[in-house]
């Protein structure tokens, strides 16, 4: 059996620093979809408790020691950063290879997002611990506010390079505009 090498969709893309923002690939570890069965919430809560988590409210994620549970739809969430324990009450499937995760950070990050996402993601309107399913231009994405000046953007793996390109272009445009002013 040949040895297969696991590669992320953004393999070889190095971090970009422009316009007060940094774009890099985020390493979030395993990504597991947890889709709650009708009447499965109670059983699922038990399994999640074993790793110190509860099922998140809509538009929220909960983080414990690098493990996150990220709301991403009705009765649906992603568990990231951990190989999941046995979970009852939900359909559980490994989605690690299906997603690309971009980290966007720095004081300029909100301005970059404002160019691509038609939602109010300013720091005051989108606090740490919030997550939205929203379009990045026309790409479906899951966007998390992970820190004071830190966001993560999850896109379908097939969209990884397009997403990178869009963010890079937005950063370049902001940098060019700033250069004109000075």
């Amino acid at each position: 059996m040949p040895e297969l090498i696991a590669k992320s969709a953004l393999e070889g893309f190095s971090a970009q620093h422009l316009a007060g923002a940094t774009l890099a690939e985020a390493e979030v570890g395993p990504i597991t979809s947890v889709a709650v069965y009708p009447d499965g919430a109670k059983a699922l809560a038990k399994g999640l408790k074993s790793i110190g988590l509860t099922f998140p409210a809509p538009n929220a994620f909960i983080e414990k020691k690098g493990t996150r549970i990220v709301w991403n739809g009705r009765d649906q969430a992603f568990l990231t950063g951990v190989v999941p324990p046995t979970l009852e009450g939900a359909a559980v499937s490994d989605q690690t290879d299906g997603w690309a995760v971009l980290a966007l950070g720095g004081p300029g990050a909100v301005d970059v997002l404002a160019r691509l996402v038609p939602l109010d993601l300013r720091l005051s309107a989108f606090p740490v611990g919030r997550v939205v399913r929203a379009p990045v231009n026309h790409m479906n994405a899951v966007i998390l506010r992970t820190g004071d000046y830190a966001f993560e953007v999850m896109v379908f793996r097939s969209m990884a390079r397009t997403a990178w390109h869009e963010f890079e272009a937005a950063m370049q445009a902001l940098a060019a505009r700033a250069a004109m002013k000075s």
């Binding site: 809509p58 538009n59 009705r74 038609p118 939205v132 399913r133 929203a134 379009p135």
Partner: peptide, 11 residues
């Protein structure tokens, strides 16, 4: 009801 107020083009 889940996502909050969103632009018509998302639908």
């Amino acid at each position: 009801p889940l996502c909050g107020e969103r632009d018509r083009r998302e639908f």
